[in-house]
Each structure stands twice: as structure tokens, then as C-alpha cells.
Amino acid sequence: MLKLERLVIDNGGFLLSADLSATAGAKYAVIGPSGAGKSTLIGGIAGFHPIKSGHILWQGAEITDALPGKRPVAMLFQDGNLFPHLSVEQNIELGIDPDLRLSPDDQERVAQAIHRVGLAGLGTRRPAALSGGQQSRAALARVLVQGRPLLMLDEPFAALGPALKADMLDLVDTLVRESGATLLMVSHDPADARRIADEVILVAEGIAHPPQPTAKLLDDPPPALRAYLGAPDLP
């Protein structure tokens, strides 16, 4: 279980508070208005923003002050998820050893991951020689070999077209289901949340609210969310 205890994250002066817990293995969408602090929440849990007060606990162990690379977190950013001067294979290998020293077993795992995300035969290419969707797949393959129990997505598929984005979300859904990882996914599209998330964490006005079941929250949104969603079909 991921527990945020009276947590206050400081993102360059912008403060976001959160007091909530998330069940291991469940899938959460983080939604809310632009600038409300969605990325700050993810970044704070991943270790990129200073914690002003409170605690982050994973399975009961304190990770509040751990270095980002030492947390049980795999993260995909909005962009720049691959190093342009390394091959697809090397980019994935980084998920196993940051210094790229791999045993034959490790290399086998990389090959399987490449196969699993549908990039077989493209491992020696550089990211620039892949399409946007293929780049996302490569990044997901790395997440796969990282084997971290928490997966954070900060809208990595935002630049993809709607059909491709749906494909990627389905792939994420499958991979997370297989590995049993916990998913926290920032999104500004309620359809994404309905597609994949069990529960929704609403972030509004500097507060991350405890998760609520996706359908219930989206069908009957509270005022802050209703303003964001544009409240299209009120009876």
C-alpha cells in the first residue's frame, strides 16, 4: 500500500497537500484542472520535489527522503523518456543496470521485453528512427524490465493520436495486470480514466483528494471537477 501521510510537496513555492492511501495493485487516474498540481503529486512521490512536511510510505517503509532512483517507482515523463544517442536496446537495458553491464540472463529479459511490447527487430535502432507510438512502446519495455512495483505516468502519451493513445493505455493495462504493479496515471481526459482506472484521485486547488471509484466520481462530479469537466449533461 502507498500511504501519503499529511504530505506537503513543495514545487518551487507551489504547495500541494495530500493525505490518502492507495491499494497495491490497483490502478489510479490522477485528474483535475490544469495547474492544480497533478504533476506535482506524481513528481513528489517519485522524488523530484522537496517534501515540506509529512511522510510517504510504501508497504509500511518510509521513502520520504529516498533518492528518486532508489524508490520503488518507475516513471514516464511527458517527453524525453528515451536517450537519443542510445539504441532502443540500450535505453531498455538502463532499466536493469544504469551502467549497462548486463548478464546474459539480463539480456534475455531485455529481448523478451522488446518482443512483449511489439518492437521485435527494432532493438538496434535509435529513438529518432522510431515512430511516436514505437517510442512509447520502447519506454514501456524499460518500465517492464525495471520491475518496480509503482508505475507513474505523467501523460507520456499526450502527443499521440486518440487511437494510438488508446492502444498504449491498453498495453499499460495489460502490463500492469501481468506484473501486479500499482499504477498512478496523470490525465486530463476523463475517457482515459474510464478506460483503465479503478479509482480516481482528484487534484484541485492544491489538494489531492482520497481516491474514489472512477464511475461514481465521473458520473456525479463534485463542484471542482464539474467546473473542469465543463458539466456537459446535467439532468
Binding site: 522524488g47 533518492l67 528518486p68 518507475a74 515523463f77 524499460r142
Partner: peptide, 8 residues
């Protein structure tokens, strides 16, 4: 950020 998150 990516490097840090990969423990590099």
C-alpha cells in the same frame, strides 16, 4: 530527471 529516476 529521467536519469535520476533510473538510478543513473
Amino acid at each position: 530527471p529521467l536519469a535520476v529516476s533510473l538510478d543513473m
